[in-house]
C-alpha cells in the first residue's frame, strides 16, 4: 500500500517533468514573444529598446538554458516575475486560486449530486417517461457548450430580473451563493450529463447481475437492493470518469470565468497566453497539471476503498 503510493508519487514527478517540457516547448513554438507583441500592438518602435527587453528577460538565451533557469527557480520555490505586471508570479496567482478552486469544487459537487441520483432513477425506471426525459436532458448537457449555456443563463437573468449576476468579492448570503452556484452549474452541467449517462448504463448492467437477484431473494426492499447492493457496484466506473472530468473541467472554467467575469486563474491563464507571459503560463500550467495528477491519484485510492478486490502494491 505504502510502496504503491510512493511509486505513484514518483510517477507523478515523471509526469510533471513531461508536462513542463511540453508547455515550455509549446510556448516557444507559438509565434512571437512578449517583445514582439509589445512592438506590434503596443506601439513601441525603437529596435534597441526591443533588444534590451529581450536581453533583460533572457529570451535570447539558448532554450535548454531558459528551461534550466525556470525549473531551477521552480524547485527553489521562486516562480519568477510576470512579464506584464512585473510583480512576482506567486503574488498574482495565489489570490486567484481560491476563486477558481471554489468554482471547480462546486461544479464537481453539482455534477456528482445531479448525475448520480438522476442516473440511478433513469436506470431503475428504464424506458419510462422519466427515463426518456432524463436522457434528453443528459444529451442536451453533452451537446451544449458551457459558454453557450453560460450566456443563456445570463440572458435569462437579464430577462427576468433585469440584472446580470456580476462577480462581487464582497457579496454575502444569498447573493454569494447565487454567484457561486450559477457559474458552477454552467461548468458542471456537462459533467453532470456525462455522469448521469454513465451511472444509468452502469446501473442497468449491474441490475442484471446475479447478486442483485440474490439480494431480492433475501427479501430486501427495492431501495436496499438499488442503493446498498447495486449502486455500490455501479459507481466504480463513475469514479474513474470523475477523475478524467477533473481535467476536462479546466476548459469549461476558462470560458465560464470569462462569461461570468470571474477573476479566477483560468481566465487569467488565457490572458497570460495572449501576452506570451512565459513565467505566468508555465507556472500556472504546472499548477493545474499538479492538481489533475493529484486528483487522479486520489481517485485510484478511492477505488480501493470501494472495491475490496482492488489491492495495489506488491
Amino acid at each position: 500500500m505504502l510502496s504503491y503510493i510512493i511509486r505513484r508519487l514518483l510517477l507523478m514527478v515523471v509526469t510533471l517533468f513531461g508536462v513542463s517540457i511540453a508547455i515550455f516547448l509549446l510556448l516557444r513554438i507559438v509565434p512571437g514573444n512578449i517583445a514582439d507583441i509589445l512592438f506590434d500592438s503596443a506601439g513601441l518602435i525603437d529596435p534597441a529598446e526591443k533588444k534590451k527587453i529581450v536581453a533583460d528577460l533572457g529570451l535570447d538565451l539558448p532554450l535548454p538554458m531558459q528551461y534550466a533557469q525556470w525549473i531551477g527557480g521552480l524547485l527553489r520555490g521562486d516562480l519568477g516575475f510576470s512579464y506584464v505586471s512585473e510583480k512576482p508570479v506567486i503574488d498574482e496567482i495565489l489570490p486567484r486560486i481560491p476563486i477558481t478552486a471554489r468554482l471547480a469544487g462546486f461544479a464537481m459537487l453539482f455534477s456528482i449530486t445531479m448525475g448520480v441520483p438522476l442516473g440511478v432513477i433513469s436506470a431503475v425506471r428504464q424506458n419510462s417517461g422519466t427515463d426518456y426525459g432524463l436522457r434528453i436532458l443528459s444529451l442536451s448537457g453533452l451537446s451544449l457548450p458551457s459558454f453557450w449555456l453560460g450566456l443563456l443563463i445570463l440572458m435569462a437573468f437579464v430577462h427576468y430580473s433585469g440584472t446580470i449576476p456580476i462577480y462581487d468579492r464582497n457579496a454575502s448570503g444569498w447573493n454569494w451563493w447565487m454567484l457561486q452556484l450559477i457559474p458552477a452549474a454552467a461548468v458542471g452541467f456537462r459533467s453532470a450529463a456525462l455522469i448521469m449517462r454513465l451511472t444509468r448504463s452502469s446501473m442497468l448492467e449491474v441490475l442484471r447481475q446475479d447478486y442483485v437477484r440474490t439480494a431480492r431473494s433475501k427479501g430486501l426492499s427495492d431501495g436496499a437492493v438499488t442503493y446498498d447492493h447495486a449502486l455500490r457496484n455501479a459507481v466504480l466506473p463513475v469514479i474513474t470518469v470523475i477523475g478524467v472530468e477533473a481535467a476536462f473541467l479546466m476548459g469549461g472554467l476558462i470560458v465560464t470565468e470569462t462569461v461570468f467575469n470571474i477573476p479566477g486563474v483560468a481566465r487569467f491563464l488565457v490572458e497570460a497566453i495572449r501576452w506570451r507571459d512565459y513565467p505566468m503560463v508555465q507556472n500556472l500550467v504546472m499548477f493545474i497539471a499538479f492538481v489533475v495528477v493529484t486528483v487522479n491519484l486520489l481517485v485510484d485510492l478511492a477505488y480501493m476503498l470501494v472495491d475490496p478486490r482492488i489491492r495495489y502494491g506488491s
Binding site: 446475479d210 447492493h229 455500490r232 457496484n233 472495491d307
Partner: peptide, 8 residues
Amino acid sequence: MTALNPLL
C-alpha cells in the same frame, strides 16, 4: 461466483 455481492 456471481451470486454473492463482490463488494460486501
